[in-house]
Amino acid sequence: MGAVRTRLAESRDRDALIEFIRDHWSARHVFVSDPDVFDWQYRQADGRINMMMAEDVAEDGHATVLGVLGFIPTGRFDPDLGDADILLALWKVREDIAPPGLGLRLLKAIQAQLKPRMIGAIGITDAVGPIYRALGYTLDRLSQAAIVNPAFKGRTRLAQGVPEAAFAKGAVDTTRSLCKLDPQRDSDVVAVLAGRCCPQKSWAYIRERYIDHPWYDYDLRFVLHDGRPEALLVWRSVEAEGARILRIVDSIGSTGWLPSGTALLRPVLTEAAAEYIDIMGCGLSAENLQAGGFISPEWCDGLILPNYFAPFEAKNIRIALSWKRFDGAAGADAMCLFRADSDQDRPNQPLPRRTAGSGQAAV
């Protein structure tokens, strides 16, 4: 083996990286079948590909990819946010020829070169949990909970084992309401809410990540508390087995709306003819969720809220995560991680593209 070097990937590495994923991860990966998804997740306008790669460099200069660690900085969707907050994604080293410790070397290279204030990873395996813990990361999980549409009592196709209590009327809250985001009017409001989060987001981030998404049509609505924006909720419709649910993939701002979940979200379910609306997030208060009429497999025995829809799998999934702040800030109170952070809400199969901001597939 020659010299092993680590470096940030560039546009010229795109094909080699996709081939590495095909040969050493999965030939059926969406990045292989639809490289546009790879580009959307990792490729920046300046030509950088957000992957730290390790190569074996022979004496003649030929380089063989030994491993990659993909990452998604919030700056991927708003260059002004830079590399301050980073979520890790695909992490793979060759088991046949990679030297010991290469995966850890890739992680340390990201920290050393980009100097982020925060690194997080959503969807980690049990095997890497102890490694993150030894490096001083906090280990946590995405908690999943749902509000159920009472119109589907006794005939839900997607959720299973729904308890009777899930169909209760719920408390009335006259202090909170939902309001659709108006891109022409609300950019400043979004900027204020998003700037308080870790990972930090922005109006440009929201537009690029959600409003102009190439494949998904997201619904963005403010939670108003006494008429003032308290949070921005982002959800999308997901269908399987001839049924539909809504999936909250991001909540930006305060989570103080959770105890008002039933009052806020039941009308949305009626409007969409959806079985339920769910949320998966880090650090969501079980007490507030229960007060809002949410149900969860964590406290409802036998309840199944499926996670995988493409293809559909009728089972609960535990999504573990880790995160670490390097700026000395106090931890969990400032950390807000949801399904759309990292790579937990992107196509797993090729899809028709949509017209930016229109909600319609491009023709």
Rank of each mutant, 00 (worst) to 15 (best):
G2M: 09
V4G: 07
V4N: 09
L8D: 12
A9D: 01
A9C: 11
S11L: 11
D15Q: 14
D15S: 15
I18A: 11
I21M: 04
D23L: 09
D36E: 06
V37G: 04
Q41F: 00
D46L: 04
G47F: 08
R48G: 06
I49E: 01
N50T: 10
M53I: 14
A54C: 11
E55H: 11
D56M: 06
G67A: 14
G67E: 11
V68R: 01
V68E: 05
L69G: 04
F71C: 07
D80I: 00
L81D: 09
G82L: 10
A84H: 05
I86L: 01
L88A: 01
R94K: 08
I97S: 07
A98V: 00
G103E: 05
L104S: 13
K108N: 14
R117I: 12
A121W: 02
I122A: 03
I124L: 06
T125N: 07
A127P: 08
G129F: 01
R133Y: 07
L135A: 13
Y137W: 14
L139R: 11
R141M: 09
R141I: 01
R141W: 08
I147Y: 03
G154S: 12
T156S: 03
T156F: 05
R157L: 13
L158H: 04
A159S: 12
V162I: 15
E164I: 01
K169A: 15
T175D: 14
R176E: 05
S177N: 06
S177I: 06
P183K: 09
Q184V: 07
R185E: 10
R185K: 15
R185S: 09
S187W: 10
D188I: 12
V190F: 03
A194G: 08
A194V: 03
G195K: 09
C197L: 13
K201N: 03
W203C: 03
R207P: 02
R207Y: 03
Y210A: 10
L224E: 05
H225D: 07
G227I: 01
L232D: 04
V234T: 07
S237E: 08
V238W: 00
E239P: 00
D250E: 10
G253A: 14
T255N: 07
G261V: 10
T262R: 15
P267G: 05
T270D: 15
A273R: 14
I277C: 08
I277Y: 05
M280P: 00
G281E: 06
G281V: 00
E287H: 13
W299E: 02
L303Y: 00
P306C: 06
N307V: 00
A310H: 14
E313P: 00
I317E: 01
R318M: 04
R318N: 04
A320D: 15
S322Y: 10
R325L: 06
F326N: 08
G328S: 12
A330P: 14
A330E: 15
D333N: 04
L337H: 05
F338V: 03
F338H: 15
A340Q: 02
G357Q: 10
S358P: 10
G359Q: 10
V363A: 12
